[in-house]
Design a protein around this nucleic acid. Structure first.
Lengths: 149, 149
DNA sequence: CCCTAAACGATAGTTATTATAAATAATTAT
DNA sequence: ATAATTATTTATAATAACTATCGTTTAGGG
């Protein structure tokens, strides 16, 4: 069976990029943290464990490359740090997030929610939509409970 | 008739903040650019025209203060710059945006679009929603036309 | 008008990210 | 196989957007 890593390797090759050991190490970390939203710095520190000679700039460049190839999502919740996570295979649009501004946790939602909305907007505003970002800001269960104690 | 500026002054006073000329100048620029989404640097340059002695740090401090008092919205479209615009009076939720990643222009949408969605999400994920950010990323009319030439 | 906390301007410092340049690795040409 | 070319890397300097500090000034109550 072809692994996820193999498919990513092919995606790189088909755009004439090489899968260097550094790039492979970075992808491995992203695979290991699929449910997280890591900053470039987070990724760097984890990659150093399996590939200690890697430089920070390489991690940034790799994440940028993977982002351009739409292999990873790059998001920003307004706190000045970009976060990265592997794109769900087959998903052509961004998923949504619940961002708790009390504890900073991020939960994902995979429901569409915007099914009909996009085509309406495209027509009405003559705007060609390529992607979207929908984030709900509020309090997660844990923080709500904590505040009600 | 009481002006918008007067009401903002009262909002400041009622939270025990002073009304310095610098703060007034900053608010005036925001009023003059209600339809734009200015960066702190943009605001600074414009404020310097009417209040040349003002410092950059003061503009940042003022924008942060106005943001905390919910007089202005602070948004980030992922390009590393925060943008500011006056909150529409009476509007308790954020409006939406069309962000063109070709030319960087930002258009606003004031339709709700998420009317029913929020309560569903709140129930399903036990997440108390306080606000949301919905941005469509794509190509504006002008850029689409330019690319098709 | 005076006083004092609040606010200010100038500027140094920080943080996240990007650019540069020399070195290394991989590919292609000879 | 060896040289030339190209892609990619590491290390590090540079940049951009803020943010903190600190000595000075000022708004606004008394």
């Amino acid at each position: 069976m072809e692994s996820r890593l193999d498919r990513i390797k092919k995606q790189l090759h088909s755009s004439n990029f090489k899968l260097t050991p550094q790039r492979e190490a970075t992808v491995r970390i992203l695979l290991d943290n699929e449910e997280s939203h890591l900053s470039a710095e987070d990724v760097y520190m984890q990659v150093k464990n399996i590939s200690p000679e890697i430089g920070l700039a390489t991690v940034y460049r790799t994440l940028e490359l993977l982002s351009e190839l739409e292999i990873v999502n790059k998001i920003n919740f307004g706190d000045g740090v970009s976060r990265f996570d592997l794109r769900v295979e087959g998903a052509n649009r961004f998923h949504h997030h619940l961002f708790c501004f009390e504890c900073g946790s991020v939960e994902e939602i995979f429901e569409d929610l915007l099914e009909n909305v996009e085509s309406q907007i495209e027509r009405k505003y003559q705007f060609q939509i390529k992607d979207h970002r929908l984030t709900f800001h509020g309090l997660c269960k844990a923080c709500t409970d904590k505040l009600n104690q």
